[in-house]
Design a protein around this nucleic acid. Sequence first.
DNA 1: ATCCTATCCTGTAGGC
DNA 2: TGCCTACAGGATAGGA
Length: 302
Amino acid sequence: MAQHPSWRRIDGPVSVPTMPELPEVETVRRMLEASVIGRTIERVRLSGLRLRGVPHAPGLAAALRARTITTLRRHGKYLLIDLSGGHTIVSHLGMSGRWLFFPGPGSKRLDHVHVRLEFADGSRLWFQDPRRFGMFRLVPSDKLHEDPSLALLGPDPIADPPTGRGLAARARGLSVRAKLFLLDQRRIAGIGNIYASEILHRARVHPARPAGSIRPAEWTRIARETRAVLAEAIERMGTTFSTYRTLSNEPGSYGDQLRVYDRAGEPCRRCAAPVRRIVQGQRSTFYCAACQPLRATRRRRD
DNA sequence: ATCCTATCCTGTAGGC
DNA sequence: TGCCTACAGGATAGGA
């Protein structure tokens, strides 16, 4: 995959696109990797507000201080920031979380910043999250597998690309609907509401199909489109809606590629039938009734 | 096993 | 122009 220019080291204030699903978190990971590896935390300021309804652990600031960032990893939508001394920051962007990196010293007035890390050279890394659905926790690195949020996660589809055979095996006998199957982080980690609709549209599988009724050839398409959609979205630095943009940071451009998401009533890009919106699990699903029949039909080519 | 609802939150868009 | 309300959704707990 071609190295995107924005993944190089950044010289201006940096933040990253949302809405955060796997491709957006991977974009964050790559951008931070280019900026913060090897930096040592000198000062820590916390907002004191709860994230995801949970207060910061006592001693969090002290535990972060004097630690050096060694590695940035990702599993699904979780970003893992390894520190010297054997601890790892487990972070999740929730709905509105953002990481911001400022290469130089200075002060900036900004609302909803919950964690401010200042490095020895004056550069700064901030975690901002207006809606506070996000997560920022420090966990012993050797206990990550016991972490309640991480322990149950399914395979990451980038590290461990799904196959039709594998998905079909996991879906055998299940009545859960296709869209909710893809959304369930215990089955596959990283697919959110936008990409679930996109994957099923490209795979031509109706979102309300019971997972156990989906045929092997259809699972093969779902697996292939999962890999393709995620790879293309990462290439384009994710999906960004118009509200989000910063000075030196391009927004993700995958939004231009969306075929059904948020396009209710607009023509399907494949067959021009109007895109439909339904609600599954209290959230919107978008699909094309013509391209994604509710009943499996015989097709010329799969 | 699965479904449903509620919870946590604020910014945005729509109606009037 | 401003006020009000509905809506957006990731993870998770609890009840059916």
